[in-house]
Design a protein around this nucleic acid. Sequence first.
DNA 1: CCCCATTGTTCAGCATTACTGAAGGAAATG
DNA 2: CATTTCCTTCAGTAATGCTGAACAATGGGG
Lengths: 300, 300
Amino acid sequence: MSPPEGRLPNITVTQLEYLEAVGATPTWSEAASQLGVTISALSQGLAELERRVGLPLFERQGRRRRPTPAAEVVRTHAATVLASTRDVARWARATRQGHDGGLRVGMIDAAAIHHFPDALARFRSERPDVDLRLRVAPSGALLDELSRAELDIVVCVDPGDDDRLDRRALLEEELHVYAPGDLVARPPHDRPGPWVTFPEGSHTRAIIAAALAARGDDFEVVAESNQPEVLREMVRVGMGWSVLPTWVVAQADPGPPLRAEATPLAVRPLVAVRRAGALYHPGAEALFEVLATATAGTDQ
Amino acid sequence: MSPPEGRLPNITVTQLEYLEAVGATPTWSEAASQLGVTISALSQGLAELERRVGLPLFERQGRRRRPTPAAEVVRTHAATVLASTRDVARWARATRQGHDGGLRVGMIDAAAIHHFPDALARFRSERPDVDLRLRVAPSGALLDELSRAELDIVVCVDPGDDDRLDRRALLEEELHVYAPGDLVARPPHDRPGPWVTFPEGSHTRAIIAAALAARGDDFEVVAESNQPEVLREMVRVGMGWSVLPTWVVAQADPGPPLRAEATPLAVRPLVAVRRAGALYHPGAEALFEVLATATAGTDQ
DNA sequence: CCCCATTGTTCAGCATTACTGAAGGAAATG
DNA sequence: CATTTCCTTCAGTAATGCTGAACAATGGGG
């Protein structure tokens, strides 16, 4: 039906690295110096890549070059190949040195400090052989790093369906609307707000924005932070309203209590994610088991 | 946490092709001639690959070489990279020529001739723009071709969970035990058999073997075929018993009727499968919709 | 046991490829 | 108009990949 028909274009890892670099960098010069090659090499390498793919990947716009739609396809390919190559390289280095290279785990703050600190501790005591490295960051950053094979497993807000990800549900956090203490009594015809919330681009913010829009509320944002504790304190000092997981507020330190709406505004599903097709890592599988049992039956 | 740390090893597509070829071929000489290079080139190329990975991939055994466990890891990587590269190459060629390259569909016989001929016809009339190519073969062969990016979408027996596959359930076929007409009256303490069934390696055969083992029956096989119609006829002529989807027998042509056990022995789940991370193909998505609606509510 | 065909390695030589550095063109900036 | 920035092109060089031939090791057959 579709015999391999001759040999494949010898698209090199180097060329794909070039493509990734220019995609992540404003100018080619900068990309070149980050890669440690001359602009000349970069330019020629990308020209060669275009030739091998057989389609124009960049068009001139003034003195810069801008990727064509075709480049997007090849960039996706590059991401796949580079991630897999990084995996293999890391695995080979670790194997040479006789260990497994450690397990690089990414978690959002909620997971690291609230839901899974005990699970992590248990994992470390059960599997002292695994060299665990934890990175805490927002979901988006973690997923980026996962896709570049810089992390092995990530616990974050569900990013939704994606071919390249292997997702497993862990739990759902209820998100409640919190009002500054002195505003709780606002008559019901007043709309809530303004809001303090997560920065633009945050997965949780997207969930919140959608839920507020669905019930017809404005979403004027007057302050932003990725740290839920910071948001909680801003509400406390009267900056505005916020939507937070309940545990952030329950984790009460002294100060005036916040008032919440009784019913949750939305839920935030947390999932464990790996790259689809990632190298088998025994530690990753074991960690997932621990996370799954830690949440068994205990949503929230 | 894990900065890209320098550049990646420049493992080339060519080297990975060499690795794939020697894995699929008894001797390197043969692999070399299939690839259209000298053994010398193959040997040097694989040596270079070993150097770049940094681990021995082959050990000497007599005058042949046999892959180490490490090679298996790199072979998995090779499969990923080569499949993606084939996808890009094919897409690029199609794009240059101004079409989408066609939609290469694989189906097992049951899907092609029984469950989905109407769906296929409907798809062709709804989407005359899509150049549909159909290949009918057993599940295993189709999945191999899918993994090599020689097919875009496959309808086959559910191969089970796999990172690299994007599976969607379509329907479940009931498999019933059929006895030759003259043996139906065998007293119940006699065990059924001997059997005519699908060849070793068939997914369906595995399902049948497991179900028979579970109820304690022997599974002595006296005749094999991949074609269910052939199996049905063999039962008719008294070669033995078989386990078949009901439609094969219902599709009655003249001849003595077969007697079936009343309750199904097992079910055979059929799924639509694509490679995870495959290039977006609008036709594939559309076809899946048609298949899904064709089966909506109509299991069996 | 020796012969010998087969398999894979190594080496020298050649062709191709990838890179540097210098020169140059073309757009933005002032 | 001069200047800077950005990228391309070109020439030369280093690295890489391939062929063909010589060679070593193995296993099968007389």
